[in-house]
Nucleic acid binder design. Structure first.
Lengths: 252, 252
DNA sequence: GAAAACACTTGATCAAGCTCAATACAAATT
DNA sequence: AATTTGTATTGAGCTTGATCAAGTGTTTTC
């Protein structure tokens, strides 16, 4: 995106075929021509600011959305004002897949910082995919991938200790930043401690204490949202149960 | 299925269009003709016995499977022999969706009792769906539904107390049995206490104690795998936080 | 630039639910 | 019927991580 001039976002051509995120958002398999057809249905609206809703639970499904910059959390709000954070999304990731079932969003999505998205009207996408086997295949794969990711999260919440949860969280972001061409060891987390805790099924205080402890142990350096991972290998051993250090596993 | 004669399972016509589970397995929207086309690719193998694997993590994806009778657990095994139970499946439910992403199963599936399934070769299904928009639509919806269900499970594991988890579990089975024409209040659970605990992120002992307590409180009657729910409304209030009884919520 | 609102950290205490251990019960095998 | 094996229950004690509380630092607002 140019920042030399003030531009009308309406006029920006989306140009999936040149987008650096294309390999992430609909990975592997669309031919250049297919990409062009997909391109033709994609819209880009104005950017969202921190705290803006991309959509709310109960909204009708209009479009799937691909983050192009910034970051987003999805969460399911409950009556009493509390919420469960379901996931954090970085550029190249697709959100709204939960809404296909009933054409209605089952969770809400909020921008964690200034965030731009591509909107892909689902009905157009569906129609296009039925004339384009490669796109249909990508859609099946993306939906399936989401299911697989959720399963990993179930294991995290069902079995892992607080320490393992945070280490898993950090390494997940490390890998995702790396995949996007950023540093795997030095990055900013756009969400609050509270949101991290909510996501990981931990109290804020526990998250805070763990950051402190990890720092004391030389695993990382942290200052507010800025995280530097100093010992990836040791973090990785923590993720996988940490046979050495911890004396007992949670109910195996 | 007739039980008057010994029949060769190879010879049974699958006949989705007459199957009582059709509304569950590919709910709403296939025309009778489309159903016939789908029918033509479905295969039924011999039944599985308790403990048999339907597939293992790492197996190539050949077919999606619809349970026609019995029940199945899916789980992701980890190196050290422990596992995370991901879900329990009843007749009419589709399994294997996680494997579409890499054409490789990311979890294992085991029969909890004698279990029969319809196999739907995925490549045939995919091809058929690209010529049949209604089937493509069903597939999108089913995949999306799975994602939505996983999200509910994340909330359960992330936020709910042991009591809330078990009540949720029981009411989920109640509804699913009801939907299949069985009693919503009197049923057999095919899985062990250990598997229930594993699924709910609880120790076996906790599950056992909760069953005992629920029984003492008149919520249900339980004898091993046989469960009779005596107070659905009260169980439902427990599911939704139970403002009255419990003094404190888990980190809201 | 002060004040207010919010986010994070740290400490002290507590309890939910886990672990360990022993026992009871059921099903399978002989 | 008796033995074995697996599954479920119950009790006692302990640990992890939650809650409560106070204080510090940061950001926003006026």
């Amino acid at each position: 995106m140019t920042n030399r001039n003030v531009v009308s976002f309406e006029n920006i051509k989306v140009a999936c075929k040149n987008c650096s995120l294309a390999t992430l958002c609909l990975p592997m398999g669309l031919s250049p021509e297919d990409m062009e057809r997909l391109d033709s249905i994609v819209k880009r609206g104005r950017p969202f600011h921190r705290g803006d809703h991309l959509f709310r639970e109960g909204d009708n499904l209009h479009s799937l959305r691909v983050i192009t910059s910034g970051s987003v959390k999805t969460f399911s709000p409950s009556e009493d004002g509390s919420e469960q954070v379901l996931s954090f999304h970085l550029p190249g990731e697709l959100i709204g897949l939960d809404a296909i079932q009933n054409e209605c969003h089952t969770c809400s999505a909020k921008a964690l910082e200034t965030t731009a998205v591509c909107e892909i009207p689902f009905h157009n996408l569906e129609e296009l995919s039925s004339n384009m086997p490669s796109l249909q295949h990508q859609m099946y794969r993306l939906l399936s991938r989401e299911i697989g990711q959720d399963s990993e999260m179930l294991t995290l919440l069902g079995k892992k200790s607080a320490e393992e949860r945070l280490a898993t969280f950090l390494l997940s972001f490390s890998e995702r930043f790396k995949k996007r061409g950023f540093s795997a060891t030095d990055f900013f987390l756009s969400m609050s401690r509270h949101e991290i805790g909510n996501y990981l099924g931990l109290a804020v205080e526990t998250v805070s204490r763990l950051f402190t402890r990890f720092q004391e142990e030389g695993l990382l350096h942290v200052e507010r949202k800025h995280v530097q991972l100093l010992d990836l290998p040791r973090l990785a051993t923590i993720v996988h149960g940490n046979e050495n250090g911890r004396s007992h596993q949670r109910h195996v």
